[in-house]
Design a protein around this nucleic acid. Structure first.
Lengths: 126, 126
DNA sequence: CAGAATCCGAGCCGATACTG
DNA sequence: CAGTATCGGCTCGGATTCTG
């Protein structure tokens, strides 16, 4: 079947890539990663500045999430020795390139938030 | 800060929408939703057909995931009475419209999978 | 300032068994 | 055929406390 519903471009990758997508979603699909990437899109940020701008994230979770994002190459971490210690986080080139698909997702979410809310209300529990 | 890194389009929605994005990611970012949406992109499918084509998903999880996707309006569920019983799942219009941003995400994942894998290997555990 | 260690609770994933 | 009921196990999120 070439182009189901005429919505999928005939060229391009298979929609049903098992591992590849899962790998990305697993890392970026948690509670905070996308939000942190969004905040770092504004430019490099220090740890506490990030925490304050995000608002309701604990040190613990922010630290772990940043570590995983660094491990996967989305962000770079730079330590500036001194008193007090400074650590700056910024998006890597890969992280920056991720902003494009992220924006499509955000726009879709923005445009469909009411449709989703309405669907949830209309859904009848069986 | 207008257009950080020159990558974000000046117009459009805020990258840091707290609730809106989280709401979408929460529902679609689990282990199976995107995969199921991808499979339904090929056209309407019956329950067992879906399970077989996906392969390693249990009835339980498939059922629950389909319910949530239906609740949020991504898919439609049609019961055809008879012997044996038939239930057909298909993408709703909203579900279909989601395929566009999904494709951008998939393409990005496809293009960057090796970069991610390399970053993970290079990451030194502290 | 920038985390690490520890602990708890909630929720998801998954297998198995049962039902209309 | 298309589910539901039940039960574990495991991971994630979050609060609190401690450290260089």
């Amino acid at each position: 079947m070439a182009t189901p519903h005429g919505l999928l471009p005939p060229e391009g990758t298979d929609l049903n890539q098992p591992c590849v997508v899962r790998d990305v979603i697993d890392r970026v699909g948690d509670r905070w990663s996308l939000l942190i990437i969004g905040h770092l899109a504004a430019g490099p940020q220090r740890f506490n500045a990030l925490q304050r701008s995000i608002g309701d994230i604990s040190k613990q979770v922010l630290s772990r999430t940043l570590s995983r994002l660094e491990e996967d190459g989305f962000i770079n971490r730079t330590v500036i020795s001194g008193k007090p210690l400074q650590v700056v986080y910024e998006l890597s080139n890969m992280g920056l390139s991720f902003l494009s698909p992220l924006r499509y997702l955000l726009d879709w979410a923005h445009n469909n938030q009411h449709a989703i809310a309405y669907a949830r209300k209309s859904y009848v529990q069986k």
